[in-house]
Amino acid sequence: MKQLVLSMIAYAVQRDADMVQLCKLSGIDVAALKKQHAAPVSAQQLQDLWLNASRLTNDPLFGLHFGESLQPAALGIVGQIIQSSATVGEAITHAAALTHLVTDLVRMEISRSSKAFAVKLIPAQDHGATPPFAFRQLIDLLMVMVIHELDGLLLEKITPEAVRLAYTVPDPAEYERVFRCKPIKRNGEYALVFDIKYWEEPLLTANYELQELLLRKVSSMPQPVPDSQNLQTRIYNYLIANSYLGVSSLDDIAANFNVSPRSLQRKLKEEGVKYQDIADAVRRSLAVYYISSGNYPLKDISWMLGYNELSAFTRAFKRWTGSTPVNYQSL
């Protein structure tokens, strides 16, 4: 819970919220929270944090977008269970048992049929058709994290067969973009349904090691100082931290920064840069980092950067560096 709260504050700051104001309004002492034996965050503090983070970032879908930004954190959760799991099904089952480490407001249950498996979030208390704002944000966050955990386990973007929520979503198009599936209102139910074919898929240790490599790169980056950052730097840092399955599109970045694609392009133009320039800089940085680490097939690195064909990655790498990946490896 402590790490979740710290991550939430960091994401709000990335979205231009004032950390001092956010913590003061929410009754949270960040310095105390970072200590090893910090007192737990109360339910009221957490509720206030959701409300204030949403208000200060001017984003009523803060939980949804926060979940979308938590890909490396979600992979970290996978990392805790991957050693004892041989398949996706085992990993998801073990993850369900660890839900209490994140929140005690819901528990996770897994059900299977011959055609699909479902990940269900069961509230500790019945909120009816109009659950509190903070609870809806938490549900959005957890459901997006489940999808990203599956992405990380399989190293591909997984599309749910169905997304069921007990409340009417305020922005159906944005929920569909993030969930990759149109959400359906189903009274009393919070569930993600996936094709059963993924259940027995083996976990790929080499892929996980590549993801861990990315996390180490992200953690070694200097911590940003939001007030001193221009937009292109903030976008670069965001892409670096969320590029383990390819670099996000302009539309996805615009939605996560709570602006229209056109507005984002205009603001970047004022800084003298295009979004494609930033995206290519991220791909180049990650490509060089992965190749320099050694011991990883170029095919896997190509997949990690979102290229379906090794030849496409090779052409791009030569454009960035003047050398092919194979030649760069031998330097």
Rank of each mutant, 00 (worst) to 15 (best):
N256M: 03
D251K: 15
R234W: 00
P224N: 06
L268Y: 01
G272L: 06
I240D: 07
E212P: 01
P261Q: 05
S263R: 05
Y275D: 08
M221N: 06
M221P: 02
S260Y: 01
K269T: 13
G246D: 14
P202A: 11
S248I: 09
L210Y: 05
E209D: 11
S220Y: 02
K274R: 15
K269H: 08
D195V: 13
L213I: 02
Q211D: 03
Q276L: 13
A241E: 01
E271Q: 09
F194P: 02
N237P: 00
D195Y: 03
E209F: 11
T233D: 04
D227N: 05
Q265R: 08
I278M: 08
P224Q: 09
S243E: 09
N237C: 05
L204N: 11
I253C: 09
W199A: 09
Q223S: 08
E212H: 10
F194S: 12
N258M: 06
E271H: 03
P202D: 04
V193A: 10
N242V: 10
L239T: 01
I253Y: 02
A255Y: 00
N256V: 01
S228C: 08
L231I: 00
P226W: 06
L214G: 05
P202G: 14
G272V: 10
K197C: 10
R216T: 02
N230E: 04
I196L: 09
A241P: 05
Q232H: 05
N256R: 03
F194K: 03
N242A: 09
N242K: 03
A254H: 03
E212Q: 11
Q232E: 04
D251I: 12
D277L: 11
N207V: 08
Y208L: 10
E212N: 07
A255Q: 00
Y275K: 15
N207A: 13
Y275G: 03
L268A: 07
S263I: 11
A206D: 06
E209S: 12
V273C: 07
R266L: 08
G246W: 10
L231Y: 00
Q265Y: 03
K274Y: 07
A241L: 02
S249Y: 07
K267R: 14
L250R: 14
N258Q: 05
Y198F: 12
P222Q: 14
Q223V: 04
R262S: 10
V273F: 02
R262K: 06
E200Y: 10
L204V: 14
I235Q: 08
K269I: 07
S228G: 07
A191N: 06
E200N: 15
L192S: 14
E189T: 10
Y190K: 13
R266V: 12
R216F: 11
I240T: 04
Q276E: 12
Y208K: 09
P202F: 12
P222R: 11
S263Y: 04
N242S: 15
A241T: 01
P226H: 09
Y198H: 13
M221H: 02
R266D: 07
I278W: 03
A191D: 07
D227T: 10
E209G: 10
E212I: 11
E189W: 08
K217F: 15
E209C: 12
P226F: 11
Y190Q: 15
S260A: 09
L215K: 07
P226I: 12
S260R: 05
N230F: 01
S219W: 15
T205Q: 06
Q229M: 11
S243H: 00
G246V: 12
P226Q: 10
D277N: 13
P224W: 04
Q232K: 06
S228V: 08
N256P: 00
A255W: 00
N230Y: 02
Q265P: 01
